[in-house]
Design a protein around this nucleic acid. Structure first.
Lengths: 337, 337
DNA sequence: TCTTAGCACTTCTCTTATGAGAGTGCTAAT
DNA sequence: ATTAGCACTCTCATAAGAGAAGTGCTAAGA
């Protein structure tokens, strides 16, 4: 167990280290945080804390650096008292609303905004949920074997994909099929539309069977496989940090973050329930992420799931970053109908 | 003017420097390229070439490094004898065709492929041209003030944007308007469709005037403002290069390349006529790009303009990169109908 | 029993010195 | 015109030493 005083020391070391970036010595703690106690006392405590795995020494005669375990204490403390959103952000949030020309642009902008204000690498992702509400479906014949399925979801997300169809279907038939589907939709969740569609296929829609079946499959896939659209920004921000002058490590993580598939893996490795998630350094299952912290917020709205994530150094500004993330998420949820 | 022998030396220095990455000494040239001549002779020539601005010394007692001017000679020599496409690429190109689920995914994949094979930062962009052929237009009412305009172009490119409309328009009216527009389209170039539309608006379509006008504006904007979709990959590749261990410079260029607007600026600063463009180091107008070379190929097909670009170090493998770029471009053009 | 002053010890970093290595420019001979 | 020879310059790696920061331990004090 950790005593009251040890906790104080842990928090002090984390705070000091986040601020200065230098290993923290006993003198600094004695002078600035536990003013009543002498460096020697702090030293004894620190030695114990090191044994318990909260602190860590780069070398014998350096100060202490917090471990992931210590950061965890710190972050949990922050999460208690909801931090205030950073100033200046509001102006940008207003800008977001203006920018609502389409969901992709919106998220791209949000991602840039996050990375700028937090100086972290940022990811914004959006995908359909099982209860997504399609608003509009359209089929476009491309050639004798390919049809493009277009779906507009309630939240304004547009999804399109080319599918192969077994036999040539005329645009007229596709139009008729699309019209039927659109009539059925009327802002109901996909699961309802789906069963209704299946019922209709057996009867009326027999004619368009193939096209419809393929389209239904496609829509199902959208909802289930959760094929997210990703918007990642701020690689340059991470490079600016004094912590990462060692290029080799950055290259590894950048490769990871550039691949959408690995990003998806990363996100899927956590329970994606709504709300804020904080994964600190060694808590992360992925080897390359051990030197970084990952914050992300899952927001479900209008049948879509949005994920806003930040990746920064272990000694990132958790307080500010969490506040920024929450503020943007809140705004986005409200904005996203 | 440059003598025959001086040209030989320039090409040798460039080739040697690209291969080894070390400043090239007179001994190396004498031993491996101009075997008949002694180092002293080469030295004299090199001193002249330095004065002429083709070579450059990091310090007094180092070998010579080529300048942009020297690279230009080298690249021009390469462009004479069309280099053979690199082996192994074909397998990947086949993969491209399979992946044609939608244009965005295709380009994203191409961008990744380019950066992997050339070990450069890569950009793939696609935008509509003035002679684009819309294939399908759809209007979706989002709320009383907003309508989404969806356009599928001949090449499979999908464009959508939310526009504000002055008055509430019912989905039925929008459907009717879309139907009219789609009838007019029939794979004609936009310019023709445009005039036909204007004629119709005055008469029949009066009812849908507002929606149509906004949509036409939107389509015009697409063709003119050339709002490209960008797919950039391979930041991690550049970091792996031994040339760029100096993090500060990379951070600057990454910031540049992450911003779509600056990318657009970059591309627009060159005459975007079809074909291959090579901009070497100092030839580039943009300050941050002076240490890099930029290759890009402009491909116009099916009313769309595709731009495939590579950004690498001055001493990149021009031969292989150019071949890769050409091979992928050729395949893409054929594939893109 | 908890705290603290004092001190020896460890390790890092910064500076300076030194020598090896690479490559040049110049001169004089071919 | 070419080249051998040589002094010169600059970098880079290594070593050595001074100085700073911070620790662990011991013994004395509250």
């Amino acid at each position: 167990m950790v005593t009251e005083r040890q906790l104080e020391i842990i928090l002090a070391v984390v705070y000091e280290y986040i601020t200065t970036g230098e290993p923290v010595g006993s003198r600094a703690i004695s002078k600035r945080y536990l003013t009543g106690k002498s460096p020697a006392t702090i030293r004894n405590e620190m030695a114990d804390l090191e044994e318990m795995g909260y602190l860590w020494q780069p070398h014998t005669s350096a100060g202490r650096v917090p471990t992931s375990k210590a950061y965890r204490f710190y972050v949990d403390a922050i999460l208690q008292r909801k931090p205030a959103p950073p100033q200046g952000l509001e102006r940008w949030l207003k800008e977001i609303k203006k920018r609502r020309r389409n969901t992709e642009e919106l998220l791209s902008y949000v991602s840039t905004l996050m990375s700028r204000t937090t100086r972290c690498f940022s990811v914004a992702a959006i995908g359909a949920l099982g209860n997504m509400q399609p608003r509009r479906v359209d089929f476009v014949r491309l050639d004798s074997e390919h049809v493009m399925v277009l779906v507009v979801l309630e939240g304004g997300l547009v999804h399109h994909r080319v599918i192969a169809v077994p036999g040539d279907i005329s645009q007229e038939k596709l139009d008729a099929a699309a019209r039927k589907v659109n009539e059925l939709i009327a802002s109901r969740p996909w699961s309802e539309v789906r069963t209704a569609l299946y019922r209709q296929i057996r009867g009326e829609l027999e004619d368009y069977f193939n096209a419809c079946l393929a389209a239904i499959d496609e829509l199902d896939a959208m909802a289930l496989r959760q094929n997210y659209h990703f918007f990642a920004r701020g690689a340059s921000e991470i490079l600016k940090l004094p912590d990462f002058q060692d290029v080799s490590r950055i290259s590894a993580i950048l490769a990871l973050l550039e691949e959408e598939e690995s990003l998806l893996c990363l996100l899927e490795s956590y329970s994606l329930k709504e709300g804020l998630h904080v994964i600190i350094g060694e808590e992360n299952a992925i080897e390359e992420m051990r030197d970084y912290s990952l914050l992300f917020n899952v927001v479900d709205a209008a049948g879509c799931r949005m994920i806003l994530g930040l990746i920064g150094p272990l000694r990132m500004d958790y307080e500010g970053s969490i506040a920024t993330l929450e503020a943007i998420s809140k705004d986005l949820r409200e904005d996203h109908m």
